[in-house]
């Protein structure tokens, strides 16, 4: 495979001509934003983001409403293009889907059974009995193997979001982008989902980018917390706490305090 196809550049827009910047291929890098700006009309949402994320890292992105954190995620998932700057993605392994997106809402197809919904995550990757077997495997991992043939409408909110997680993971993505997927769940279901997410992430070692406004959730799950404020990175903090982490420990509380100070200081 030629080196150029190992790396893809989503966008480098400034002039209409598709000028491609020099890209170094780094297998261990998940993605890198370089000087990324995003404007909608007159409004600058992202204003010079530089972010380099190694493969396998769990990054949490925090910020107040409207700070641009969801836009960052949409750029990463290819749902939008940067106005200027570039986004570099790392090497692609065969048989893996590139980036998967988990939305705030489950967004399950109401007319497809649970297992068929998970198979949506294998579009263009697998079909038929192979797809069904893989979908059932991942449903087992999220604890819903016995609900495979039911309609989504009979599931609870937390169960629906677990199906959405299974759909996102069934194609073994290299990057999982999560846009506040636990925001609408009740507090206890939420902690359960966080533990499930951490367990699967530890097992599959994909790169996770979690957008959240829950600082406790960020420090409990992430290796690294990025605070965005006014379209810029205001804080880039490592969370050097061993796993499994104990919720409410002094160490996590101290980090939480640092982040909150930066958000409201």
């Amino acid at each position: 495979m030629p080196a150029a196809s190992l790396t893809s550049v989503r966008s480098f827009v400034a002039a209409p001509a598709p000028a491609r910047p020099a890209i170094s291929v780094e297998g261990r890098r998940a993605f890198a934003f370089k000087g990324v700006e995003k404007r909608f009309g007159d409004k600058t949402v992202l204003d010079g983001i530089d972010l380099d994320v190694p493969a396998g890292q769990f990054v949490a992105v925090i910020g107040k409403s409207g700070c641009g954190k969801s836009t960052l995620l949409r750029l990463l998932a290819g749902l939008d293009r940067p106005t200027t700057g570039s986004l570099t993605l790392g090497a692609e392994e065969e048989g893996h889907s590139r980036t998967r997106f988990m939305f705030q809402e489950p967004r399950l197809l109401p007319w497809a059974s649970v297992v068929k919904n998970v198979e949506v995550g294998l579009t263009g990757i697998a079909a038929g009995t192979d797809a069904r077997r893989r979908a059932l495997d991942i449903l087992g991992e999220v604890g819903l193997a016995d609900r495979a043939d039911e309609w989504p409408s009979v599931l609870s909110g937390g169960q629906k979001q677990r199906v959405a997680l299974a759909r996102a993971l069934v194609g073994h993505p290299q990057i999982l982008a999560l846009d506040e997927p636990l925001g609408a769940l009740d507090a206890l279901t939420r902690i359960e989902m966080q533990q499930l997410l951490e367990r699967i992430w530890l097992a599959q070692k994909f790169t996770a980018v979690l957008v959240t406004h829950d600082v406790a959730e960020a420090v409990a799950l992430a290796d690294r917390v990025v605070v965005i404020s006014g379209g810029r990175i205001a804080l880039d903090l490592d969370v050097p706490v061993a796993r499994p982490r104990r919720r409410g420990s002094a160490e996590l509380a101290r980090l939480e305090g640092t982040i909150l100070d930066r958000l409201f200081g």
Partner: peptide, 16 residues
């Protein structure tokens, strides 16, 4: 439209 966006993100072509 959320479901349509989901379908696009998961790589469905126009026919699918």
């Amino acid at each position: 439209p959320h479901l349509v966006e989901m379908g696009r993100v998961y790589g469905m072509d126009r026919r699918a």
